[in-house]
Design a protein around this nucleic acid. Structure first.
Lengths: 343, 343
DNA sequence: CTGAAAGCGCTTACAG
DNA sequence: CTGAAAGCGCTTACAG
């Protein structure tokens, strides 16, 4: 099978007694071909088991039918966060609906991402690029913008967002609402554990948090903002630091369930009551937030929708050349016991 | 940028004052080209910003440099299980190391998988196929075997395994060891909650469980074997059924952490003590097993390694035509409090 | 060591 | 409505 001659357009043409141009037109559903010819050609294709060679088509049509998906870090941490698998699921769904293939790459650094992007584009392997992470100074976004290759990002660009296709939650609002919710419940001293500060999403959430404090007439304190990588250890360490702060905070916003989960465990070990002594609210609404004891209030970011929408956006960028479109996917706050004992 | 003429081998040839054949040979590192010419050509490529067109290469070389990865169901459930993201991570890592791209598809049914496989192969989009699930009567395996296209599976084929490249854990042994471990600790009545029975992995684990019972002089009871889909609900329901069995089981083997986690919660709600009243052991060693209260004994299947090895196997199948190779990835049982209160 | 030529399997003006 | 011809960007015997 492998390297055998496969049946080509020529074989079909010969069998059907027409030219290969005609066969080609039948394949591409050109309406000018008579019904009779179409039927005959289709029959021959069927009989010979003919399948168009996608590679050959790409070469002349200059379209690959593939989208390049650039995922950040393949490290263990990222896998604990269901965001990526869920987004990926939305992406593959939307792509396959539109008849596009997904070429997936996972990368540890932005430099690596950029290399991959270049090889995809220059090797003519993809019609468009989907970025699943955006940093404050993002070489990939910069490069893609410069050469004006069709792309879309899940997340928001830090600058020039009016020229960049992107789909995102309103992370500013989400963090604002979450923090506001705590203040309205009477929390007076709310800490935040945020993720990698070079990520745009982190910045936005911090802003939302600050805004909510301000509106609640609470002052933002640098000492209560904890920034770091996302793993269980971070959760434990920051949770102890939070407890050591004087006066002790009575609430904490965490931007990832895994970290929040670890924090909750530490609080409990030290016999802090949740939510009585300290309220905990988080992001991603993963299984951990639901199954924690107590269950943790968490923001569902709708990763699957983000994935689907991003593909739709990218497809428009490819087909119609649209740039700078922005789609906001709704978020949902799931309120649970970690913030309100009555739930 | 998009549909512009890009610089081709011809442009480089003209600039370097050589033929395009020569340029082509430089690209493919043909040793016959003089150092001098090579250098000149390389310079010109650099200056012109030339990148070989992968599509054109594929067309003539009949190699795509891509592997088709066929994932099962994109449903929410699957995403809760870190197995797939983790395996995928191993796959992309190994593939990119070897200079191959990954074309990813997620599918709800085996029929769908088969369609995708056919379109990949007949469209000449991939050099090989990686299957991430194997059923007892698997149309995909059957088809790929029939046309003898290079493929490998993660998991085991149900039949003709001596002709099929696959990488798997020894799931029979893993279930055997896990069950034996419980019986050695004195458990006398051990139930099992297993997954989809059309999956080969499920069958193997059931066999291992039976074997261990037998060796421990315990009889296998149909009523203590629970088979179903994998979600939280299943866990709750089966856990209640287990409790209702007379006499009550004192141990249960579950083939997925999520289900085990749900079962543990139910047991606790009904004031059964774990492990005193009932021991719980599970598979996948996901975050849920570690963070459960008590932590759950679980088998780590090394999904990342499975992913990597499967790519290596597939690459050999493509390059050297190997068939029927089998690789066993080690599993590790993490013993935790759910089976032994002293841990 | 290098070049001219044929060809991979398709599409697409151009002509009829 | 259909065909002949050129061409997409590369590789690879064949000849020298």
């Amino acid at each position: 099978m492998k390297k055998n001659k496969s049946v080509t357009i020529k074989d079909v043409a010969k069998k059907a007694g027409v030219s290969s141009s005609t066969v080609s037109r039948v394949i591409s559903k050109n309406p000018k071909i008579s019904e009779e010819t179409t039927k005959k050609v289709l029959e021959c294709m069927e009989e010979l088991g003919y399948h168009p060679n996608a590679i050959a088509r790409s070469l002349v049509s200059r379209r690959t039918g593939s989208l390049g998906v650039i995922m950040p870090s393949t490290s263990k941490d990222a896998l604990l966060n269901p965001f990526f698998p869920e987004a990926l699921s939305g992406i593959t769904k939307a792509a396959s609906k539109a008849g596009f293939d997904i070429i997936l790459s996972t990368n540890d650094t932005k430099e690596q991402e950029l290399e991959v992007i270049k090889s995809y584009i220059h090797g003519s392997k993809v019609d468009g690029i989907l970025l699943l992470s955006s940093k404050v100074e993002d070489q990939c976004i910069e490069y893609l913008s410069k050469i004006d290759f069709p792309f879309a990002i899940i997340g928001s660009p830090w600058e020039r967002s009016e020229t960049i296709n992107h789909v995102d939650n309103d992370n500013y609002m989400a963090a604002y609402e979450l923090t506001r919710y705590l203040t309205i419940q009477g929390r007076k001293r709310i800490a935040m554990i945020a993720g990698d500060c070079s990520l745009v999403v982190t910045r936005k959430r911090i802003e939302g948090y600050k805004k909510a404090l301000e509106e609640s007439n609470l002052s933002f304190e640098e000492d209560l903002l904890f920034i770091g990588s996302f793993d269980e250890k971070t959760g434990y360490e920051y949770a102890s630091e939070i407890i050591d702060s004087k006066p002790a905070p009575d609430g904490v916003i965490v931007t990832d369930d895994l970290v929040a989960f670890a924090a909750v465990r530490l609080f409990k070990q030290l016999h802090y009551r949740i939510p009585e002594d300290i309220a905990v609210a988080s992001f991603n609404n993963s299984i951990l937030s639901r199954y924690s004891n107590p269950p943790i209030t968490s923001v569902d970011v709708n990763a699957m929708t983000l994935g689907e929408k991003s593909v739709e956006l990218l497809l428009k960028a490819i087909e119609k050349g649209t740039r700078g479109r922005k789609v906001i996917a709704p978020h949902t706050i799931y309120k649970r016991k970690s913030t309100d004992g009555n739930l």
